[in-house]
Amino acid sequence: MSKLDQILILDPPSDLRFKGPFTDVVTANLKLKNPSDRRVCFKVKTTAPRRYCVRPNSGVIDPGAAVNISVMLQPFDYDPNEKSKHKFMVQTIFIPSNVSDNDTVWKDAKPEDLMDSKLRCVFELPSE
């Protein structure tokens, strides 16, 4: 499987940290920066879609621009023994110059055109 390197710069680059207690919504911010001179389409995917609310969960980033994404972990009963195994993936693709519609970009995307980055979730508890 051929893989392109992710063009976007992710901040944080690999871990999304959520601070407990998890009795209320906990938000982690993820910044995506497009350092290239081409427009990029992105999509956020997760292994636990029911546990998170992600805004925006897809979109377009202009050359040199950045997007701030809010990843909201929904309240749940935290078990101290639970280590999050949740993961996120940011999937991106360059927008061809002859395409204006984002849905078409994804529909026509070839696997070798896709770039992705994976992030893992880290649950942090306040010290007891």
């Binding site: 292994t47 992600v54 909201m72 992705d116 994976k118």
Partner: peptide, 14 residues
């Protein structure tokens, strides 16, 4: 390595 099948589109509404 995780297989991509484990990933689903994130939702924007809770």
């Amino acid at each position: 390595a995780l297989s991509e099948d484990e990933f689903h589109d994130a939702v924007s509404e809770s």
